[in-house]
Amino acid sequence: MSLLQASGLYAGYGGVDILRGTNLRVEADEIVVIVGPNGAGKSTAMKAVFGLVPIREGRVEYMGEDITNRPPERMVTRGIAYVPQESNVFPSLTVLENLELGAYALSGDHRPRMEKIFEIFPRLKERRHQQAGVMSGGERQMVAMGRALMVDPHLLMLDEPTAGLSPRLIDETFERIKGINQLGIGVLMVEQNARQALAAADRGYVLATGENRYEDTGPALLANPEVAEMFLGG
């Protein structure tokens, strides 16, 4: 049984389908990356899975359960966390307050989760009383991922986690994502830095006009000359 299985998704905005039969699969121990040109439907696919865009046709299963068109708050309580590309922190709140809000839907003592996140992101512990809005882009991305991890998810969904970051911070972000995956958390990621993302991925999907064009291991997609020429800049 796959951690996540999305089959034949048709979804979009205002009655216009952006996704046209899209399929996605994530196993429990995998990092899976979605790449493709602008307008390919990558972010729409993530939002459809998470219940932010209505699915007109198709099915999403999570751990064998049909979650098609479930509201996002239900996804969170089932162990799916989503980090959007933009507006992913509360800038006027401290790091600590941002993390605490990540666990709003859960009961019990959140301190063990908080300590685990501080182990993954030591810089957040150092700056836990600092407002998120005055932090660097890379630090804000750590806050966003940390808050998502407060729900102790089985699946972490990341939309363009390295957007706007320097090359050094991009490398650091990918290393953090690998570390999170090694904790037993499946990762589904949309990423503009396609070469680095595929190098880090167990499997990848190439989308174009809302349709699956290629699916293979990350290294195999990187080595595919057609993928390189059409989608990776040669």
Results as ranks from 00 to 15, higher is better:
Phe174Ile: 14
Ala197Glu: 01
Gly184Val: 10
Ile180Trp: 00
Thr209His: 13
Gly179Asn: 11
Asp202Val: 13
Phe174Gln: 08
Leu183Phe: 02
Arg203His: 12
Ala199Val: 11
Val190Phe: 03
Asp202Ala: 14
Val206Gly: 10
Arg176Lys: 15
Gly184Tyr: 07
Leu198Glu: 08
Gln192Gly: 06
Ala200His: 14
Arg195Glu: 02
Glu175Pro: 00
Gly184Cys: 04
Val190Asp: 00
Gly184His: 04
Tyr205Thr: 08
Ala199Tyr: 11
Lys178Cys: 01
Ala200Asp: 03
Glu175Gln: 13
Ile177Leu: 01
Ala201Thr: 07
Ala194Met: 10
Tyr205Asp: 02
Lys178Glu: 11
Gln196Cys: 01
Gly204Glu: 01
Phe174Leu: 14
Lys178Tyr: 00
Leu198Ile: 12
Arg195Thr: 07
Gly204Tyr: 07
Met189Arg: 09
Ala208Asp: 15
Val187Tyr: 04
Asn193Ser: 07
Ala208Leu: 14
Val187Gln: 05
Gln192Tyr: 12
Glu175His: 13
Asp202Met: 13
Ala200Trp: 11
Gly179Leu: 01
Ile185Cys: 06
Val187Lys: 06
Ala197Tyr: 07
Gln182Trp: 03
Gly204Cys: 05
Val187Arg: 04
Glu191Ala: 10
Asp202Leu: 14
Asn181Cys: 11
Asn193Lys: 11
Thr209Arg: 13
Arg203Gln: 03
Gly179Ser: 11
Ile185Asp: 01
Ala200Gln: 11
Thr209Trp: 03
Glu175Ala: 14
Gly184Met: 03
Phe174His: 12
Ala201Val: 09
Ala199Arg: 14
Lys178Phe: 00
Glu175Gly: 00
Arg176Asn: 14
Ala200Ile: 15
Arg195Val: 09
Leu188Ser: 06
Val190His: 01
Gln192Ser: 10
Gly186Ser: 07
Arg203Leu: 03
Leu183Gly: 05
Thr209Ser: 14
Arg195Cys: 00
Ala199Gln: 14
Leu198Arg: 11
Arg203Cys: 02
Val190Met: 01
Thr209Phe: 14
Ala200Lys: 11
Val206Ala: 10
Ala194Val: 08
Ile185Val: 13
Leu188Thr: 07
Leu207Tyr: 03
Ile180Ala: 07
Asp202His: 15
Ile177His: 02
Leu198Gln: 09
Gly179Tyr: 00
Leu183Ala: 02
Ala194Asp: 06
Gly179Ala: 09
Phe174Tyr: 15
Ala208Gln: 15
Lys178Pro: 00
Asn181Trp: 04
Val187Trp: 06
Gln182Glu: 15
Ile177Ser: 04
Val206Phe: 12
Gly186Leu: 05
Gly186Ile: 10
Leu198Asn: 09
Ile177Tyr: 03
Leu198Trp: 08
Gln182Tyr: 04
Leu207Ala: 00
Gln182Lys: 15
Val190Tyr: 03
Arg203Trp: 12
Asp202Gly: 08
Arg195His: 04
Met189Phe: 08
Ala201Gln: 06
Ala199Asn: 12
Ala200Met: 15
Ile177Lys: 02
Leu207Pro: 05
Ala208Arg: 15
Tyr205Cys: 08
Ile185Ala: 01
Met189Tyr: 07
Gln196Pro: 02
Gly186Pro: 05
Leu188Glu: 03
Gln192Cys: 08
Leu198Tyr: 09
Asn193Phe: 04
Ala199Gly: 14
Leu188Arg: 12
